[in-house]
Each structure stands twice: as C-alpha cells, then as structure tokens.
Design a protein around this nucleic acid. Structure first.
Lengths: 246, 246
DNA sequence: AGCTCATGTGAACGATCTTTACATGAGCTG
DNA sequence: CAGCTCATGTAAAGATCGTTCACATGAGCT
C-alpha cells in the first residue's frame, strides 16, 4: 500500500512539484467520467497521490478548481472556434458552418470542459475572469456573424449580427446539450448531431436570405466585400440541407 | 425546537400520511433554490419534518426521487405543450410558435422541473418510464412539426418532420438553457429569451419556405388539410422577425 | 549551516447518504 | 373490541466528503 507513495517520493521527493496541474488533470478525467456533479475534491487528491487536504494549498475550495477548469475550457474553446473560423476562409458561409461543427466537436471531444463550462451550474458572472473568458469565446461567433450579416442579400433587411450570433450559439448549445456527447443522459438520434446542426444552420441562413446551396435567391448584383463565395464547396447536397425528400 | 414535531404529530399522528408527496414538494422547492446538484436528501426530509431515514421508505435513493420529479416534470411539460399547440388552432404557424413560447415559459416558471429533466445529469434511458415520458413530451413537438411539414409550399422539397422537430427542440432548449431562467449561471441578453426564440424559429421556418409574415412566397395553390390559416395573427412584425432594420 | 516559507500530512469536525435494527400505530380480521 | 400485521417512521451507525487546523518537511536563499 505504501510502495506507491515511496515510489512517488523517490520520483519527485516530498513535494509533488506540480500538484496544481496534476489536480486539474485529475479533475478533468473525473468530470469526463462522472460529470461535474459526481466529481469529488477528495478523489482528485487521491488520484494525484496526495492527502485530501493538499488541494487546499492550490485552490480555495472545490468551486475554485471547477472555475479554473471552466476558464481553461473557455480559452481552448475560443481557440478552437477561432481556428475553425479561419477568418472567414475560403468563404463566409463555409467558414461559418465549420465553426458550428467545431462547436459540436469540442462538446464531443472535451466533455469535461464542456460540462464544467455549461452544465456545472457555477455562477459565471460571479467570477470576472471566467466571465471574460466566456465572452471572448462568444465573440468569435459574434465576429463571424458580423461578417455574415454584412453579406446579407440586397433588398433584404440586414439582420442584427448579435442576434444571429445568439441564435447560432443557442442552436449549437441545444444540439450539443441534448444529443451530442456520449453521456447516458443524451438522447438517441436518427442522424448524427453534426448533420442535425448543419442542416439547422443552413435552413436558418436560408431564412435570412443567404445563398446556401446553388444560391437560387441570389440576385447577382452585389460585389462581395470579402473573398468571393465559391458557389460549390459549402457541403450542401443539392436537394436541400436535409438530403433527398422522399 | 420540538414544538414543530409535536404540532405535526398532533395534526397527523405518528404517520405523516402523505410523506411521499411532501418530499416531492420539498425537493422541488430546494431544487428551484439551489439547483439539482445542491439539493440534498437530508434537507428534503428535514423540510418535511421527518428523520433522514424516512425518505428511504418511499424512494430507493436520492436518484429515484430526482427521477420521480423529472418524470412528473415531463408529464406537466407534455401537458403544457399540448395545450399550447391546441391542435394547430387557429393556424399551424401561430400554434407552432405558441409551442415555442410554452417551452420557454415552462423553463422559466418551473425551473426545478426543467433542471431535473434536462440538467441534473440523470441517465434518461436507464429509466424506461422516464424515457417514455420524455418521448411523449417530444412527440407533441413532433406531431406539430408533422402538421407543419404537410403545409410545405408546393415546389419545395418537403422537410422531414422529425428533423424539424429536433431542430425546434434544440433551439428551444438552447435558448432556455443559456439565457432563460433566473439562475446566476445564465447569461445576460440584449433581448428577452422569448423574443430571441421567436425570431429564431421564424427565420428557420422561413428558411423552409413557410410563409411567416405576409406570406410572399405562398403560391396559393394548396387546399390546407387543416383550418385555413389566418393571414394575420402570427405576431410577426412586417419588417422581418427581428423588427426594424436600422 | 541555518532560516524561512511554500507545500504536504494527519487528525478532526460537521454534513450527507445509506443501511440496519427497532418502534409505532392504522387498518383489517375475527 | 382484541389482536395481528405490515407500512411507515426513528435512532444509531458506517462510509465518504468538504473543510480547517496544527504540525512536519524540505527547497532555495543568505
């Protein structure tokens, strides 16, 4: 029973050396397994090979550890969304959909982060740093929506970018929360979450008058202020965003 | 300290008489206050004026109490959605939007139920009764989508009703989860959640080719299989679902 | 070598979840 | 009405957890 301790002592001495990081990693694993609710401070300590009191040298309490994870999650989230957006290349609509997929991919691949960020019930606005990180991530979607709104077909009223961003966020979060992720809590689906969200966003964009397939509504009289949209390559099957009607 | 017990004893004798119901109510209140994660079995017992072990006569464990609440929540949810749908009166689109608002209203007015149903991390598919209740509630949306899909403008490919229903559900859940409810965890918004969702659904429906405002695309060549749609009354401002463009 | 302070330990407290053995009394049976 | 039975509640106890406190250790500086 004590060989582990001895071994670790031999490795790293009395002091752990990087306990804070080890705790964060341990917590991530535990949250991924059992959800933010099921994760216990004591477990994280045990997994890091230290006593139950040790974590208090690095985090005021359990909530602060959770907040740290959420914060880190928002930062990685922002990064992934930014990469996906790729400044709107090769064309705005394509990049926009890529952001949607990146959203789902993050929820699927980093369930622990996503859980801590959106489902742990921690008060976001109580922690200014956390709130700021959350807003930075949202701003990626917002900036993308801004660019998209500027592309609104002439003659159509220009949709407020903020609203578009909130709509897209709610769609992505709704799909991720209800259907994505491996949790037992998630519902079964007749299609993949990615397909579901992609169709949803495409229909929504079409509702705003954006050309999403073969741009049937495009009145062809607008010099695009950004790199010209490729008419193919948006990944939309020709019969509409949901494939062949039967 | 013991007068409460004595009083209750006087009222109801040794046996509580309706402990199961009292526990459910107590739990509902606690969840509304502190969220499903913060709610404790012991608190519910204390609030009902019984010992900490008493609840185990009525629920196998804390999770079963939570499941019961979720189940009851799904039943009330189904009822509210059914009422809102009102069998598609006075017209399908109007009724459909009313369902969306009912969704948000439920999330706002019954935070405890909503929390237990969607945010408590309960394994829905582990409990057949719970899963069935959840599906019955979803089926209201599904049935509404079915009727809506049947109204698809001629010439347009008919969208699969199931997909539409999933889209609407994800929108409503996304908005509710991110922005509705008084929780400190919720984000601030430049508009009301209801307005946000209504605009989102309207844009989506327009993307499917449905007439959502003054039906400019309606080709007028379809005998509606349901009561004829009133051309006004859908609550849509003339400039588009998001009000006046600036 | 010696000092100091960050870091970890062990013990302890109160709260919670859950089980177990026991008590009570409501309602049925005769 | 007496007595039985069983659902329902209690008290006590064990296990785990969050948290705090006094204390120990050793890494790095002087």
């Amino acid at each position: 029973m004590s060989w582990r301790k001895e071994q670790r002592r031999a490795e790293r001495g009395y002091h752990h050396g990087n306990l804070k990081e080890a705790l964060l990693q341990a917590a991530l694993g535990l949250i991924a397994e059992k959800g933010a609710a099921g994760f216990t401070f004591a477990d994280a300590a045990r997994m890091a090979g230290v006593s139950a009191a040790a974590p208090y040298r690095h985090f005021r309490d359990r909530d602060e550890l959770l907040s740290s994870i959420a914060q880190r999650g928002f930062e990685q989230f922002e990064q992934r969304l930014t990469e996906a957006w790729d400044d709107g290349r090769p064309d705005t609509v394509t990049a926009f959909e890529r952001v949607g997929r990146a959203y789902l991919a993050f929820a699927r691949e980093e369930p622990a982060f996503y859980n801590a960020m959106f489902e742990s019930g921690l008060p976001v606005d109580a922690n200014p740093a956390l709130q700021a990180a959350s807003e930075r991530a949202f701003n990626v979607i917002r900036a993308a929506a801004e660019r998209l709104a500027a592309l609104a077909p002439p003659g159509t009223p220009r949709p407020p970018a903020m609203m578009m961003a909130l709509h897209i966020w709610s769609m992505a979060h709704g799909v991720a929360s209800l259907f994505s992720r491996g949790d037992a809590a998630r519902r079964k689906l007749p299609m993949s979450p990615d397909e579901l969200l992609e169709a949803e966003v495409l229909i929504y964009l079409r509702g705003l008058g954006f050309p999403t397939d073969r741009r049937p509504q495009a009145k062809s009289a607008e010099p695009p202020p950004v790199p010209p949209e490729a008419s193919s390559g948006s990944g939309v099957p020709p019969g509409g965003p949901w494939g062949k009607p039967k």
